[in-house]
Design a protein around this nucleic acid. Structure first.
Ligand SMILES: NC(=O)c1ccc[n+]([C@@H]2O[C@H](COP(=O)([O-])OP(=O)(O)OC[C@H]3O[C@@H](n4cnc5c(N)ncnc54)[C@H](O)[C@@H]3O)[C@@H](O)[C@H]2O)c1
Ligand SMILES: NC(=O)c1ccc[n+]([C@@H]2O[C@H](COP(=O)([O-])OP(=O)(O)OC[C@H]3O[C@@H](n4cnc5c(N)ncnc54)[C@H](O)[C@@H]3O)[C@@H](O)[C@H]2O)c1
Lengths: 216, 216
DNA sequence: GCTAACTTGTGAACGAATTCACAAGCCTCG
DNA sequence: CGAGGCTTGTGAATTCGTTCACAAGTTAGC
């Protein structure tokens, strides 16, 4: 593999690798701000709670970005990871379900900072539609398809009650959106070309319950 | 391994196994409500998007709960998984950081339903302390140690700004709490006997960005 | 009570992800 | 300019998790 390797031709990358890249990027941004020039795989590993071999292997799937004997150039590696992850652009995000969790997400500044822009928020409840949040007016869910055809959102965040989650996902998929972040604690079905990630907080708490019960 | 196998003696269980158990339990509860008596590993697998061998292997780490030729008794398996996961009791949960995400979590009914009771909410901001949320009054963070000694919470949910996360985790650990669910997008350090799980939504969005960029 | 149909439980095989270990390359210093 | 120290990049070895495949047990029907 050399510097001309196209990402599109790269073999299947493990999800765990992608998540670690995201982590490394955070550290690099921190180092960049503090004016550091170079960083070693060992230092990145220490920060991320992994090993230097792991860091180098993760990066090696995409090319070779370091200098032997020296390490990685912080701004260069930062740029390369952003490129790999597709973070060099702004992503258009919609929120479906203007409830408590939708509200927290819509007002969260951390997403915008990383290039994820909330371009619309939808709900079914008449008393919510038309109300303003931040700079967004909550829209009627019936507009979803029409708006999507025009505004071409990239990502949908699904924060509706569990019962409505699958049917709303189906509409999101039909509207042509290929990436969904789901907060409803249900298992969803989607076509293979649509990526669905779920955040299941109840499952996290249950994992903690397991830890406390079994090795505590 | 037989029915007398103690959980404490069981070898290291993969995190992925624990998460699937949590998933199976959801399906079992659904089946239970609909009055089904028995269920096969194959049906559980279909629901969970996995294979029947996977389901049986997951369960086999803890004992053998099924009947050959028939499947699993729904109420019995449900009970056994709850036991394995430590869900037969009520867990006492505190929320540290009464901001937007803390508010959504504190008011969420889904946690109580699964045995996770919010027993206290803390903040530093004078204008928040004393205000009421649901049935909780927001307490001064300075009370944390004193309250913990008395009320013995089991789990802390950490929803403070990133900068404050590590120092608050240290206090939580010192206060004797052994399980933490963190929402701040930072890598935290904790002693080995404390389990920390993190929900990192920005990382999930970045994974979606990667998917869209690389196989889209 | 025997057969056919079914489903579990589990070693063994496989595949994926991590870790090891070292040759190759780069930098500094004398 | 050559030696010594350092760090990358990567095949090979290892560890970990999943899937296969089948013997063993259960039920129903006749
Ligand atoms: N609040 C939390 O802390 C939390 C934690 C974990 C998971 N969740 C999950 O997140 C989801 C939302 O939770 P919440 O607490 O924000 O609930 P909520 O009741 O506050 O909000 C849900 C919103 O979705 C709207 N809605 C209902 N059907 C809709 C549809 N078909 N299209 C568009 N909007 C629709 C409702 O009008 C409401 O405004 C639920 O699935 C919940 O289980 C929430
Ligand atoms: N809001 C979201 O949707 C969202 C999404 C992902 C991650 N997060 C993360 O969750 C955390 C909280 O986010 P938020 O949006 O709720 O922020 P927020 O500013 O609304 O709330 C933070 C709260 O913590 C309190 N606080 C500050 N220092 C504290 C301390 N030492 N002890 C106790 N309380 C303290 C503040 O007074 C404030 O009430 C942040 O780390 C954020 O990055 C939030």
């Amino acid at each position: 593999m050399n510097e001309f390797t196209s990402l599109a031709t790269v073999k299947r990358i493990a999800d765990s690798t992608v998540r670690r890249l995201s982590l490394y990027l955070r550290f690099l941004e921190d180092f960049e701000q503090r004016g550091l020039e170079t960083i070693s795989s060992d230092e990145l590993a220490r920060r991320g709670g992994t090993t230097s071999a792991q860091v180098r292997k993760d990066l090696s799937f995409f090319g070779s970005f370091g200098k032997r004997g020296l390490g990685y150039s912080v701004p260069e590696l930062s740029r390369r990871i952003r490129e790999i992850m597709g973070l060099g652009r702004e992503w258009r995000v919609i929120i479906v379900g203007a409830g408590k969790i939708g509200a927290a997400l819509a007002q969260y500044q951390g997403f915008v900072q990383r290039g994820f822009h909330i371009v619309a928020v939808y709900d079914t409840a008449p008393e919510k539609i038309g109300r303003s949040w931040n700079s967004q007016t909550i829209r009627d869910i019936r507009q979803l398809e029409r708006d999507a055809a025009q505004e071409k959102p990239d990502i949908a965040v699904l924060t509706v009650p569990s019962e409505a989650a699958q049917s709303m996902l189906d509409r999101i998929v039909k509207a042509g959106i290929k990436a969904v972040l789901n907060f409803a604690p249900v298992q969803l079905q989607a076509p293979a070309d649509v990526t669905v990630k779920s955040v299941n907080m109840a499952m996290e708490l249950e994992s903690l319950s397991f830890s406390l019960t079994n090795h505590g």
